[in-house]
Amino acid sequence: MSTASSTEHAAASHGHEHPKWLAHHFDSPAQQFDTAKLGMWIFICTEILMFGGLFVAYAIFRGQEPQMFHQAHEHLNWRLGAVNTIVLLFSSLTAALAVRQSQVGDRKGTSRYLVLTLLCAFGFLCIKYIEYTAKLDHGLLPGRCFGHPWFGDHCIGGGAAVLPAAVHGLSTRAHMFFAIYFMMTGLHGVHVLVGIGVLSWVLMRNMRGDFSKGYFTAVEIGALYWHLVDLVWIYLFPLLYLVG
């Protein structure tokens, strides 16, 4: 291994300004930025595989009992689902605009769009809360809770599930639909919460003045994560609310 030219290399990298935010193991800001972005893309692959398991479960059980899925889905409020879809799509737009503003060094603009994105995220969760409450009122929680509004007796804990013969005109087997519904939207909801955490952190750093034209990595990868949250919902909405 030759180290003859490496002295030059080291000297060159030292000659450039070495900003505070550039970690010691990177040579250039571009390298650090690309590294962070690649990391987030790989993480997104992981997330998609994680949801993938639930999508497979959905496909299998819907394939087995399409009619049950059709009946059960009518208990979901597609209007609220549609509103949430629009809210999330809009929030993806504002997240992308936040990245754009940080690229041109507009700190205020970045903050503005991040706040809008966060408001959309909270709006999404509020609507989800209304939907979940209705399901709980109707005793549509899956598993042992099925048929028992809110958390009835024997809902949590050991023993086999004792399910009533019918709930709101649905056969007992409809609890499978709600099992998948709650797992998928629940996991997605957790991702919305994590997204809120990530974007709040980005917003805080932006307000502190951490970012500039040359350094906006966190804004970019935060927005990338938020697009994933949006992407998953784009599939969940038609599959769960619009079963035809």
Binding site: G143, A161, H175, M183
Partner: peptide
């Protein structure tokens, strides 16, 4: 919660 995804009886 007795979620039935892996439970044949459910």
């Amino acid at each position: 919660f007795g979620l039935g995804i892996f439970d044949a009886s459910l």
